[in-house]
Design a protein around this nucleic acid. Structure first.
Lengths: 361, 361
DNA sequence: AGCGTGCACTAAACCGGTTTGCTAAATCGG
DNA sequence: CCGATTTAGCAAACCGGTTTAGTGCACGCT
């Protein structure tokens, strides 16, 4: 025998068995009108009997389309999935993709390089998630030549994009806490390879930070850099980051977490450290993931339409793919505060102690 | 112009620009040893300058491999992602796939047909999740000829598979509740197109049901069919199923939920209905997803190594793919009860009322 | 009979790479 | 200095489909 390989049935085998040309077999499946009815049926019959299934790869090559879209994430899949935000987004992506019969390919850095992974991926377009504008690989991704929709990504004006008013959301979070009397804050940022010193001001993190700062500044509160710590956007990451800050002696009465996952981690850490929430510590998240209503205590957070973001991203991408539109549409969705039980008035003791330092009323 | 198409740089363009053959260009990337060093460098240089990136589809076709694995789920992506169990599993899958440089393709029913989706997918193998043995399409999937590892799927002895001792886990859950004095139970099953009358006894649902029954039977308790209700394995599904049962007049003191997602839903519904957990109702989940420790109250549940299941499934699959092994290995992982705060002794009032019926001590 | 039309089907080109044999020149051993 | 081996590079086949551009034939019309 020539070589093992797969003894898969090829289109030529069917053609031979049916005594027709390859073309006819192809037509029997994809263009039956060009064949006599009984011929088409006979061919399909024989194909079926032989167990013929067209090779999807060969099909892609000749048709020039893959029928799949790629979800681009700057973090490895293992961390991406430990963030419920991503799950929710994928719900939306899945919904829209299913609808139009497109497959979903997950693309994360391959051996540390997103560009390499992008090059390997056989898709018709990408939905890029959280690719900061200063991410060094954003340009390489763009060079793939395939259509891209940027979600939460600080894309250029020529790119299609979907995002939310992160800044307004963060502002609402800060105002909420300030309104409860808090003056000692800790911000927990998510850190996908992001130098906190100079976050891209257009990026999600930069925008949220700006919102927080604006809200605090309105009450005359500064936010020094040592009150901002960061870690991966996971429960473990949030828990660890809070513990670290606490260990270093920081004693905030309120935590502004940039994601619900991080906020969940804070709740866990606080519980372990014997800190009562919201009695001694208030926590506000961001995202309003399903679980936010179920944790203990239920999390006050900034709601954003995560699922819809996923859906719209895919719909936008598909319209670009199918209509070959140039696609530079921008969609901007809204956020709002959802007040639950993880926030409360600033604790008495702390108010007195800190009050002496900062307030003179 | 002939036709728009993509004006992508092809290997032939590079060859022409460099004044060499296509073969040499290919070698410059994939087999540089067969070229003089400076030639290889020069070619790569020109390719780079031209922005050449090999078409992954063409590459797949000629190499006969895709560098990707498919995750097969019997439900649409949108519901799959609303189940935290799946997220955790994907963490493991992502970890192992990243490690070996494989991509991950999500495959869910296309226009209702899993077989169709499988046919369209260009992957080197599948990890099938929760495909019940009596699922009509399991056979069609197998006919793809590609290697498959079945997770939680009641596969045949010739298939590679990974699962956990669902029955023992369920037994432990039932024993725990019986030990607390409960006698009025409600079982909430997950329902991916599963007729509860005759669940595949080898399937996950069948096994867990058997475990529950065994544990109850040991205490002389029957589990009539009307005490088993089912719904999708999501928070919403669990919430709705419990509400329905409650609305129909069922008044269990203990709920056995077949997944944590369902259990979360029960907690929500109970809270809405003013039922105190664990004071008036005990709830046991299954999976021990990360969130289980965070909900209110923290969920008593059966722990299973979900992440590891994902990892091992991929490793097993890759070994079959790469070594062309016949792969009929079975791995059986273990479960154990994690006791948290959602379970407690049977409530007094109920104990008296029901005690009259069933107990004579 | 002569011509146009439509039908049923096919040969060959094509998609964009990789791989196999082969040739010509350079290098080596003795 | 000559035959043997190695090196560098190429043409063509191949992967498995789809699509283009015909071909041959039967039929209808005048």
């Amino acid at each position: 025998m020539t070589r093992g390989r797969t003894n898969r049935i090829r289109i030529a085998d069917v053609a031979e068995a049916a005594g027709v040309s390859k073309t006819s077999v192809s037509f029997a499946f994809n263009n039956p009108d060009r064949l006599a009815d009984d011929t088409a049926i006979r061919i399909r019959d024989i194909a079926q009997r032989l167990g013929y299934r067209p090779d999807p790869v060969a099909r892609m090559l000749s048709q020039g389309r893959t029928g799949a879209i790629g979800i681009l994430t700057p973090q490895p899949l293992s961390v991406v999935f430990s963030n419920p935000f991503f799950g929710a987004l994928c719900e939306g992506v899945g919904l829209a993709a299913d609808e139009s019969g497109f497959g979903v390919y997950l693309i994360s850095p391959l051996h540390g390089s997103l560009a390499r992974a992008v090059g390997r991926a056989s898709v018709d377009g990408f939905v890029a998630i959280g690719l900061a504008g200063d991410h060094p690989e954003i340009e390489q991704v763009r060079q793939s030549g395939l259509p891209i929709v940027f979600v939460d990504s600080a894309a250029g004006p020529d790119d299609a994009s979907i995002d939310v008013d992160d800044r307004a959301g963060a502002l609402a979070a800060a105002e909420h806490l300030v309104g409860l009397g808090h003056r000692e804050f800790l911000v927990l940022a998510m850190e996908p390879a992001m130098r906190l010193e100079h976050p891209d001001p257009e990026g999600v993190i930069g925008q949220r930070l700006a919102g927080y700062r604006q809200g605090l500044a309105a009450a005359g509160i500064q936010l020094p850099n040592d009150r901002i710590v960061s870690g991966p956007s996971t429960v473990a990451g949030g828990s660890e980051a809070f513990r670290r800050a606490w260990g270093e002696g920081l004693r905030p009465t309120a935590v502004l977490a940039m994601s619900d996952a991080i906020a969940f981690g804070v709740l866990r850490a606080a519980d372990d450290l014997g800190i009562n929430v919201p009695g001694a510590l208030s926590v506000v998240g961001f995202d309003d993931v399903d679980m936010a209503a179920f944790v203990n205590p239920p999390l006050t957070t900034i709601h954003q339409p995560v699922r819809r973001k996923g859906e719209e991203a895919v719909r936008l991408l598909l319209s670009v793919i199918e209509l070959r539109a140039t696609g530079s549409e921008h969609r901007h969705l809204h956020t709002h505060l959802v007040s639950r039980a993880s926030t409360g008035p600033v604790p008495r003791a702390t108010r007195e102690v800190n009050g002496a330092d900062t307030v003179t009323v």
